[in-house]
């Protein structure tokens, strides 16, 4: 029977993770979940849990964890930064490789977590990367988040937007100016060029038509990229429940762990 163990790892045990262990590995790989950022992380939490449990039922171990400065890991949010998150993913991959006793670790990232996972793939010696609707341009993500914040304030008020010096208010989250600049420089197409392993890309949107962002990644990934589109609510930006079973089913299939 699969078990779930919370533990700490990484430098000074500063990172928090949950290891989804299986009784007997039926796969030669294990999965590190790379979460998105800020509000999107909160809204996608349950889907990560459900996917990890579905993988465990299919004999695939996994590790869910929080980047430094987020969730249960150490550090204030102002110390979160994509560059540090890359190191955290590499530490998570090393830890999972030991715990699950597998050769190959696969990185699975959602939104900004996908973009960071792609950047971390080489350092983490990942066998493969699975991307769930990744952010292609960090700058566009940042701009849209600021605009969404502006719109919400117009609708419901609150949040004056005044920040301490050196801090950027990103939808209520205090991001350091340096981290904000790093996010703005993230580029999934560029990161794709830095990883020569196989990539699975799942487009999650209101339509199966290939989006402009997906097309860019398909072109950049070439033959080593497998693309699929599912019609599913953008659960990472929903407050209410969203049925994410198509996302979980695709993931199981992509890992050869489907029914």
């Amino acid at each position: 029977m699969p078990t779930e163990n919370a533990f700490r790892f990484g430098e000074d045990d500063s990172l928090f993770g949950v290891f989804h262990a299986v009784e007997a590995e039926r796969s030669d790989c294990a999965v590190v979940f790379c979460p998105p950022m800020a509000e999107e992380k909160k809204s996608s939490y349950r889907t990560f849990v459900e996917t990890a449990r579905a993988l465990a039922d299919a004999g695939v171990s996994s590790l869910r964890f929080d980047y430094f400065g987020t969730g249960d890991s150490d550090g204030h949010f102002t110390r979160f930064a994509p560059g540090r998150a890359v190191e955290d993913i590499a530490a998570a991959a090393r830890t999972l490789r030991e715990r699950a006793a597998v050769e190959s670790v696969i990185l699975l990232g959602l939104r900004l977590g996908g973009t960071i996972a792609l950047s971390a793939a080489g350092r983490a010696e990942a066998g493969r990367v699975l991307l769930w609707e990744p952010i292609v341009s960090g700058k566009r993500f940042f701009d849209l988040t600021i605009k969404r914040q502006m719109m919400r304030r117009q609708l419901i008020g609150g949040g004056g937007g005044e920040s301490e010096e050196g801090i950027v208010d990103l939808d209520g989250y205090p991001l350091s100016r340096e981290a904000a600049d790093e996010v703005g420089r993230l580029d999934a197409v560029e990161a794709m060029a830095g990883f020569d392993g196989p990539v699975g890309l799942l487009q999650i949107s209101h339509t199966e038509s290939t989006s402009r962002d997906s097309k860019q990644l398909i072109d950049a990934g070439g033959d080593r990229l497998a693309f699929h589109a599912v019609v599913c609510q953008p659960f990472w930006s929903r407050i209410d429940f969203a049925d994410t079973s198509p996302v979980i089913e695709w993931t199981l299939g992509a890992l050869g762990a489907g029914a």
Partner: peptide, 25 residues
């Protein structure tokens, strides 16, 4: 809600190839 309204605004921009989210939005 505000999140769905944001989807509508982004969808409008993509559907018609315009940019509506400017300073005076």
């Amino acid at each position: 809600d505000s999140l769905k309204l944001f989807e509508i605004v982004v969808g409008t921009e993509e559907e018609f190839g315009i940019s509506v989210m400017e300073e005076n939005f």
